[in-house]
Design a protein around this nucleic acid. Structure first.
Length: 583
RNA sequence: GGCCCCGUAGCUCAGUGGAUAGAGCAGCGGUUUCCUAAACCGCGUGCCGGAGGUUCGAUUCCUCUCGGGGCCA
C-alpha cells in the first residue's frame, strides 16, 4: 500500500486530526485541566454535522454542561471564541450547543481533488499496518453445483478482503472446500452404477450432481445403497486405491469448474486446502484435547464441556467419526502456525453461529490466546420463494444461470438504448455480473435475502448498474472534454472560489477513506455500497443542474468529474464490481 | 425449554446516544434543439413493534414483553 509523499497537509485525516487538536487546545484555554480531570477525549467526541452548511466537523458541548454547570449553548459560544482559527479554516462557530468547524473551501478542494486524481484506486487507503487477516469464504462442496446460495459468502468475503487490503492489512484468502465426508462414498456408488463418461466430460458438476440426486431417489427405494455408500467411504478413509483415485478425480474436475466461476467473478484464492487437508492432524487434535483434560464422555461420545452458556462441543461421535468442529479446530491451529494471523474471519451463514462459538471456546480452553482474533462473519439466509433452497431436493438455482440471465437482460437493454456501443459483449458481462454482485452487497449482511428475478433484473434505482452508469457518464464527459480541448485542472485548486454544489460533492469525496474504515470496522461491505450510491446520486444531480463543458468553470468541474470517476471506480473495486467506461 | 438474529413509510431497506428520521421500488405528474433519459425534478404527518429504565438527550444502550426467523436439545 503506497503512502503519499506530500505530507499530512493534503490528507483528509490530517484536517480532522488538526481540528481535534484545535478544539482540545481551546478547551484547555477555557478551563485548564478539564480534559484530564474528566477524561474528555475530543477525538472520540468529534462528529460530522448532518449537512455541509453546518460545517465539516462538529464538537458537541452537552457532556460538558454538567461538568461546568452551564448550558451547552453558552459553553459552545465561549469555546468557539477561544478556538484558534488558522487559515485553512473558514469558520469556527457555535450553533445550538455545538462548535462547528468549516474548512476553507479552497483548501478542502485542493486536498481532496489532488489526492483523488493522483491516487485513483488507492485514494483513502491506509498505510501498511503489518497485520494479517485470514478470510475463510465461499467454500463450496465438491461435486455439487455452485448455486446462488454460495454467492453470499463468496461476494461478502471477497469484498471484505479488498476492504482490509485497502486499509493496510495483509489478507490471506482461504477456500475451505467441502471435499470430505460420507457423501463421497455415495457418489462413488452412484458413479459406478449410473455414471456416464461422456456427460462427465461435458460438464463434470452437472453430471456429478445428477448422480447425487439419483442416488437419493434410488436409496429411498433400496436402503441397502446407503450401506454400500458407507462402505465405500470407509475404503476412502483407509486409503483404498480405487476409492482415492475416484475421489481425486471428482475433486479436480469440480475445482476446475469452480475456478472458472471465480475467474468470472474476478476472485483468486491463496489456499484451497479443504476439509480433507486436515485428515492427518485430527488425531493429534483429539490427543491435545485429551492431554489438557478437556474431554469428557457423554453417551459414548467425546465432548468438551463449555459451561452453562453453551451446549458441549462434540469432538468424536460414538462410532469414532470425528466431526465438523474437530476439523475446524485442527484447521485453525494449522492456519495459525502457517500465517500467525491477527484475525481470522469465517464468512458463513448465520445459522452456523453456535458452531463457531463452540470452536472458538474450545480453542481458548486449549490455551490458544490468538483465538480472540477469530470471528464468525455471519450473514442472512438466501430464501427462494417460500422455502430455503435445498441441494438434496435438487431445487437449486445455479449461479451460472443467474449470471447468464442478468447478462442477457443487459444485452437487451443495450440494444434498446445504446445500439451503437462498441464492445457490447464485454460491457454486458461487466454490468450483468456487477448487478448480481452489487445486489448482494447493498444490504446489511445479517439480513435474510429473498430471491426474486424481478428485483435482481431491475437496473433502476439503488443498483450496481446505476453506479456503473454514473461512472461511464463521468468518463464520457471527460473524453468529450478532451476532444474539445478542455482538460481538467490538475493542481492549484485552492486558488478558486468553489460553488455550493461543487463543494458538497468534494466534501463527500473526501469522506471516502473514513467510509472504508467504518466498513472495515463493522466488517460490512454494504457501507461502501451505500456510499457509492450516494456519491453517484449526488453527481447525477449535479450533472443535471450544472453544465460541465463549454463554460469558464469547465476545468474545475472536469476535475470534479475526474475525481468522482476515480472514487466510484475505487469503491466499485472494493465491492468487486467492474467499472465500465462506456455503457 | 435454553441461546442467537430481526422488527423503521404500501413493499425492499438505510440510519445515528444528539441539531428537521432518510433512500430505492411501486404510483401520479414533469424534464431531452445542449456533456449518456440505465438519468434528473416534484408529490411522504411514519405509535422508528409495545412497556418500563439509564441519560441533559434514546429510534439508537439496558430489562421485560409481543411478533417473525434460526440454532441447540
Amino acid at each position: 500500500m503506497q503512502q503519499r509523499e506530500s505530507g499530512g497537509k493534503y490528507r483528509m485525516t490530517s484536517f480532522k486530526e488538526q481540528a481535534i487538536e484545535l478544539v482540545a487546545a481551546g478547551l484547555d484555554r477555557l478551563d485548564p485541566g478539564i480534559r484530564a480531570d474528566n477524561g474528555i477525549d475530543v477525538a472520540q467526541m468529534i462528529e460530522v454535522p448532518p449537512s455541509g452548511e453546518l460545517g465539516d466537523y462538529a464538537f458537541p458541548c452537552f457532556a460538558l454542561a454538567r461538568i461546568l454547570r452551564r448550558s451547552p449553548v453558552e459553553i459552545a459560544q465561549q469555546l468557539a471564541e477561544v478556538v484558534e482559527k488558522p487559515p485553512w479554516l473558514a469558520k469556527v462557530e457555535a450553533v445550538s450547543g455545538y462548535v462547528n468547524l468549516t474548512l476553507d473551501r479552497g483548501q478542502l478542494a485542493d486536498a481532496v481533488l489532488r489526492a483523488a486524481i493522483e491516487e485513483g484506486r488507492s485514494f483513502g487507503s491506509a498505510p501498511d499496518r503489518g497485520k494479517t487477516v485470514v478470510i475463510d469464504y465461499s467454500s463450496p462442496n465438491i461435486a455439487k453445483p455452485f448455486t446462488l446460495g454460495h454467492i453470499r459468502s463468496t461476494v461478502i468475503g471477497e469484498s471484505l478482503a479488498r476492504i482490509f487490503e485497502h486499509r493496510g492489512y495483509k489478507v490471506v484468502r482461504v477456500n475451505h472446500l467441502g471435499d470430505w465426508g460420507t457423501q463421497f462414498g455415495r457418489l462413488i456408488v452412484a458413479y459406478k452404477r449410473w455414471g456416464d463418461e461422456e456427460r462427465l466430460a461435458e460438464g463434470a458438476i452437472k453430471e456429478l450432481f445428477r448422480l447425487y440426486v439419483r442416488f437419493h431417489e434410488e436409496a429411498e427405494k433400496d436402503p441397502s445403497l446407503e450401506d454400500e455408500g458407507r462402505a465405500w467411504f470407509l475404503r476412502l478413509e483407509q486409503g483404498d486405491r480405487e476409492a482415492t483415485e475416484l475421489w481425486r478425480r471428482f475433486r479436480a474436475l469440480s475445482l476446475e469448474e469452480f475456478e472458472s466461476m471465480y475467474q468470472r467473478l474476478g476472485i483468486r484464492f491463496d489456499d484451497y486446502t479443504g476439509e480433507s487437508g486436515y485428515n492427518d492432524v485430527l488425531e493429534q487434535t483429539v490427543q491435545a484435547l485429551e492431554d489438557k483434560g478437556l474431554l469428557t464422555e457423554s453417551d459414548g461420545a467425546l465432548v468438551v464441556e463449555l459451561g452453562d452458556d453453551m451446549p458441549p462441543c462434540i469432538i468424536r461421535k460414538r462410532d469414532g467419526a470425528t466431526l465438523y468442529a474437530t476439523r475446524d479446530i485442527a484447521a485453525a491451529i494449522r492456519r495459525y502456525e502457517k500465517t500467525r494471523f491477527d484475525w481470522m474471519f469465517y464468512v458463513v451463514d448465520s445459522r452456523q453461529s453456535l458452531h463457531f462459538q463452540q470452536v472458538f471456546a474450545v480453542l481458548k480452553k486449549l490455551g490458544m490466546e490468538w483465538a480472540d482474533g477469530m470471528e464468525h462473519i455471519a450473514f442472512g439466509t438466501l430464501i427462494f420463494g417460500e422455502e430455503i433452497m435445498s441441494t438434496r431436493k435438487g431445487n437449486v438455482i445455479f449461479l451460472e444461470d443467474v449470471l447468464n440471465e442478468a447478462v442477457e437482460r443487459v444485452r437487451q437493454i443495450i440494444e434498446e438504448r445504446n445500439p451503437t456501443l462498441t464492445d457490447k459483449e464485454q460491457v454486458a458481462e461487466m454490468v450483468g455480473v456487477g448487478a448480481v454482485v452489487f445486489n448482494d452487497l447493498a444490504h446489511n449482511r445479517i439480513k435474510d435475502v429473498v430471491f426474486e428475478w424481478d428485483r435482481l433484473l431491475n437496473f433502476d434505482g439503488d443498483t450496481g448498474p446505476y453506479v456503473q452508469y454514473t461512472h461511464a457518464r463521468a468518463c464520457s464527459v471527460l473524453s468529450k472534454g478532451r476532444e474539445q480541448g478542455e482538460l481538467p485542472l490538475e493542481s492549484g485548486f485552492a486558488a478558486y472560489e468553489w460553488e455550493d454544489q461543487e463543494i458538497d460533492l468534494i466534501r463527500l469525496l473526501g469522506r471516502f477513506g473514513d467510509v472504508v474504515e467504518t466498513a472495515k470496522e463493522a466488517r460490512e461491505p454494504s457501507t461502501v455500497a451505500r456510499y457509492v450510491l450516494d456519491l453517484a446520486q449526488k453527481f447525477n444531480a449535479f450533472y443535471h443542474s450544472n453544465r460541465i463543458l463549454g463554460n469558464e468553470r469547465a476545468p474545475l468541474r472536469l476535475a470534479i468529474a475526474r475525481a468522482v470517476k476515480e472514487v466510484l471506480a475505487a469503491g466499485l473495486y472494493l465491492l468487486n464490481v467492474q467499472a465500465p467506461e462506456k455503457m
